[in-house]
């Protein structure tokens, strides 16, 4: 998985490519934790993300909780597979998906 970060002032756009799973979730978690400072709007772009597993969900939950305190978190370009996972797990109601 590749992680691409774009920072515009207090807006952080993270574009993910590949798979967000047990293997890759820890690296995303690290990146996020390193970048939360001063971020008021976190945009996660999933257009190149193939799928997400529960390990990925865990990171998303952590990110959501953090952003609830300092701003907003938006997820974009969710594919069908991932949308289904969000749907199943109730994350669809919890996350802001555009």
């Amino acid at each position: 998985m590749t992680i691409e970060k774009t920072r515009n002032n207090d807006e952080l756009i993270i574009t993910l490519e590949g798979r967000l799973d047990t293997m890759t979730a820890p690296s995303l978690e690290e990146e996020l934790k390193a970048s939360f400072d001063g971020v008021q709007k976190l945009i996660l772009d999933f257009k190149a993300l193939e799928y997400i597993s529960s390990a990925g969900l865990r990171v998303l939950l952590m990110a959501q909780k953090t952003m609830n305190k300092q701003g907003v978190m938006v997820i974009r370009n969710v594919n069908e597979t991932i949308a289904e996972v969000f749907e199943i797990t109730g994350f669809a109601d919890m996350l802001t998906i555009e």
Partner: peptide, 23 residues
């Protein structure tokens, strides 16, 4: 897992096998 809870209330455990069951 209770999938209706908010982000603050949620526990992350059990989600994985839950996804497998569902898919």
């Amino acid at each position: 897992p209770d999938t209706t809870l908010s982000a603050e209330e949620r526990e992350i455990g059990g989600l994985g096998i839950f996804i497998v069951k569902k898919t």
